[in-house]
């Protein structure tokens, strides 16, 4: 009750602190006399490209039909060859009967294209997605090996997890690319995804191990006492229960993976971070670009955590 009565005070305080922070930032930026140029940023997301449409050979314009915004130009060469070009009606540059040489521009076509940031975002998403799937498989295998009664499997899994967790991801990416990539002649995407998967896999393995160990032993014993083998016991009884417990930390790991994937930009994979760096170094819009890049990472990680939150609620039915 007391808490609710004074709720407005804390809300106000939050707003004040945020405004103060923003204000301080604003003041500091003004001090360095930074020239903001937000109007130049959208084109790195989407831009309209003017593509020239050219005559494929020497020819005469035999007919032009305009339909809505687009115009169709019919060309006929001396030898009777025909071609038809589509251009934007308002950027038509020829008249009927006009003679064109090979490679002359008949008009322009406007098309929306994805800018560098969107392309980078896409690379980040697919590299993270592929790495997540591979990491899940590696983590599942390593996590189960860690719990195996076989000493060799346990030892191998343990060593893998320790080595990966005890070295920086950046160094792992360098080793994957400059050492392993060179020796086995792998391209940079394979090296990047490999390094990310192995890195996240070690953490996933620990999450899965902990999740399985959190399921009471009696569950596996009940399944075994019914005659189910160890594989069936894992698949039908232990893992489905462990999965519910594992889901939140696993999602956290995959969200980390999205952020960690920015490190593959150092081996020149053009992901969101690398795209940001490329644009920032060729324009003066450094502030706007990095703010945009941060916002884009934030949007995808937030979407993912909302999705997981939704799934968690769905899974809660049987408790």
């Amino acid at each position: 009750m007391k808490y609710q009565q004074h709720g407005w005070f804390w809300r106000l305080l939050l707003v004040v602190i945020l405004l103060a922070g923003a204000g301080q930032m604003w003041y500091a930026v003004n001090n360095v006399e930074y020239q903001w140029g937000w109007q130049n940023i959208p084109r790195y997301f989407f831009y309209k490209a003017d593509t020239p449409v050219k005559a494929p050979f020497d020819s005469t314009v035999t007919a032009i039909t305009v339909e809505g915004d687009s115009a169709t130009v019919l060309l006929t060469s001396e030898s009777g060859e025909k071609a038809s070009l589509t251009v934007d009606a308002k950027d038509l540059r020829v008249k009927a009967g006009e003679e064109l040489f090979d490679d002359d521009t008949a008009g322009y076509l406007h098309q929306w294209k994805t800018g560098q940031l969107m392309k980078g975002l896409w690379v980040t998403i697919w590299i993270s997605a592929v790495s997540s799937v591979v990491a899940l498989i590696i983590g599942m295998v390593a996590g189960l090996c860690r719990l195996s009664s076989n000493f060799t499997l346990r030892g191998l899994a343990g060593l893998y997890i320790e080595v990966i967790r005890g070295t920086p991801l950046l160094v792992q990416i360098y080793i994957a690319y400059f050492l392993i990539g060179t020796v086995y002649n792998l391209n940079r995407e394979v090296c990047g995804i490999g390094a990310l998967s192995l890195f996240a896999g070690a953490y996933v393995a620990e999450i899965i191990r902990a999740g399985i160990q959190a399921i009471p032993k009696g569950q596996a014993e009940a399944a075994r006492s019914l005659g189910m083998n160890s594989f069936q016991t894992m698949k039908d009884v232990v893992l489905p229960q462990a999965f519910k417990k594992i889901l939140p930390p696993l999602a956290g790991q995959f969200i980390s993976l999205i952020k960690d994937s920015s490190l593959v930009s150092i081996i020149s994979i053009i992901d969101l971070t690398k795209a940001g760096r490329d644009i920032a170094s060729s324009t003066f819009a450094t502030f706007e670009i990095w703010i945009s890049v941060a916002a884009m990472y934030f949007v995808i990680t937030t979407l993912l955590s909302q999705l997981v939150y939704y799934m968690e609620r769905r899974f809660r039915i049987s408790d």
Binding site: P216, Q219, Q241
Partner: peptide
């Protein structure tokens, strides 16, 4: 052992029903 266990039913103190089923 799996074949043997199928012939030997066991009931536990803590029931050990599968909670997700």
């Amino acid at each position: 052992m799996n074949k043997v266990r199928a012939e030997v039913g066991m009931v536990f103190q803590q029931f050990n029903l599968f909670p997700h089923k």
